[in-house]
Simulated assay, not measured.
Amino acid sequence: MSSKLTLPFIFSALIFLIHLNFSSGQTVVKAAYWFPDSGFPAASINSSLFTHLFCAFADLNTTTYQVTVSSSNSAPFSSFTQTVQQKNPAVKTLLSIGGGNSNPATFAAMASQATRRKAFINSSITLARSYNFHGLDLDWEYPSSTTEMTNFGTLLTEWRTAVANESKTTGKTALLLAAAVFRSADYYSINYPFQSISNSLDWINVMAYDFYGPGWFPNNTAPPAALSASSVNGDAGITSWIKAGLAPKKIVLGLPFYGYAWRLLDANNHGIFAPANGSGIGTYGDQGYSQIKDFISQNAAQTVYNATVVTNYCYSGKTWIGYDDTQSISAKVSYAKTTKGLLGYFAWHVGADSSNWALSQAAASTWG
């Protein structure tokens, strides 16, 4: 065997050293997203219930590929960290970039060229520092081809290197890096870049929700975020990430603080997967937890917890709502901590639980 160090060996060693350098030392993530369009002020967040809070969303410029914040969000974003630390000085904040309403083609275009990736990376670090965030979160929904997944991995590798270099140059603690990802380790058979994710991110936020909704599954009621015993479920997704080689302590389980409403065809047939005809409330059927609790109270709705599927639902007349209540939230957090040994959980979104913090308290107390 040659005594010379090969380039692959040197590269692997460098990646290992970078990994050691950026290790966040996080023992748990109890997190939630906040966004100003929810109408819920950041100052009202009970931040004592969280270890991390995500401020959503920064934008990606379609021509410069720099990360920006709209003029309307500049004030609340720039003061977010200071605001939430008033109730919990230890809480960490991350600026989230993208989101479900952003154009995935813009992210694909950015990640496809080195100069564009550099523009994204440098501007994201500058913005995070100027707004006093502790980290950055990429929410690209979703890389949808093999090439895009490869470019996504390259972006993460370069992002981590830049963050490490900035930390070394400034003497500041390295920014945390996270990413919100699809419910499973492949996006409809297209694999995520597992090694780049493992080497470059502090953790991933697995969006284990939006499995069913009346907008795309109109003909039957369904559990929007089933943990098990459903053709699409959270456990299958989490298990796929672990089987792909990602350490459980790199994985954070997503919890929905909202649900979806269907309109039953027959008010007397009201179980899970009962026949339905589209949305039961509004255009899309989406309802925040506080709204759902109001519906239950105002309509004397019947409530059911299904421990096998791990979901709650309620019904009144022909309106049927699938959602997570304290029982399913507690069961999912217990699953994340005890069954799978994950790093923690996050919720979308904090404003939906603001009436009495029941879900956030249930999650925090279950984890301990």
Rank of each mutant, 00 (worst) to 15 (best):
C314L: 02
A42M: 04
S354R: 09
G25R: 01
S145Y: 09
I251T: 05
S230V: 03
A208W: 06
S316Y: 12
S228G: 02
S189G: 09
K168N: 14
L60V: 14
G280V: 02
N277D: 05
K87P: 01
Y65M: 08
S145V: 03
L255P: 00
T338F: 04
T93Q: 00
Y305A: 09
T366H: 01
K340S: 14
V252N: 05
Y284I: 10
H349R: 13
I197L: 14
N233W: 10
V232C: 08
N299P: 04
T147Q: 14
L342R: 13
T146W: 08
N306Q: 10
S74F: 11
F57I: 04
F9G: 01
V84D: 06
S96R: 02
D186V: 00
G153L: 09
A363Y: 06
A222T: 04
F295N: 04
L7V: 15
S200I: 02
V84R: 04
P256Y: 03
D324H: 11
R160E: 00
E148H: 12
R160T: 01
A244N: 11
T115S: 15
G288T: 01
S297G: 10
K4Y: 10
I15E: 14
G99S: 05
I121E: 13
G135C: 09
N88H: 11
R129V: 01
I45S: 07
S112G: 15
P214E: 07
S200L: 07
A119Y: 01
K243F: 04
T147P: 03
Y142N: 11
A32L: 08
L343I: 13
H349E: 11
V333N: 14
A31T: 05
P104H: 10
Q327F: 12
P248V: 12
A128V: 07
P214Y: 04
G254L: 15
I15W: 12
W262G: 07
K249D: 12
A244R: 15
S70D: 07
A208N: 14
A261G: 04
R160Q: 06
A111G: 11
I121L: 12
V163C: 10
A225C: 10
N306M: 12
F211D: 08
G285S: 03
V232S: 15
Y284S: 12
T126N: 14
N199F: 08
S23E: 12
Q195M: 09
I204E: 00
P76G: 04
K168E: 14
T64W: 09
F152H: 06
S360F: 03
P143G: 02
G341L: 06
I97L: 01
D286Y: 02
A13Q: 06
D210C: 05
N88W: 00
T339L: 09
T68Q: 00
Y345R: 05
G135T: 03
P104C: 08
F295R: 01
D186A: 15
D266V: 13
S24H: 01
N21H: 01
T154K: 09
N312C: 09
G171E: 09
Q66A: 11
Y313E: 10
L177M: 03
I321T: 05
G213T: 11
Y187A: 08
S167R: 03
T63V: 13
N356W: 14
L155D: 08
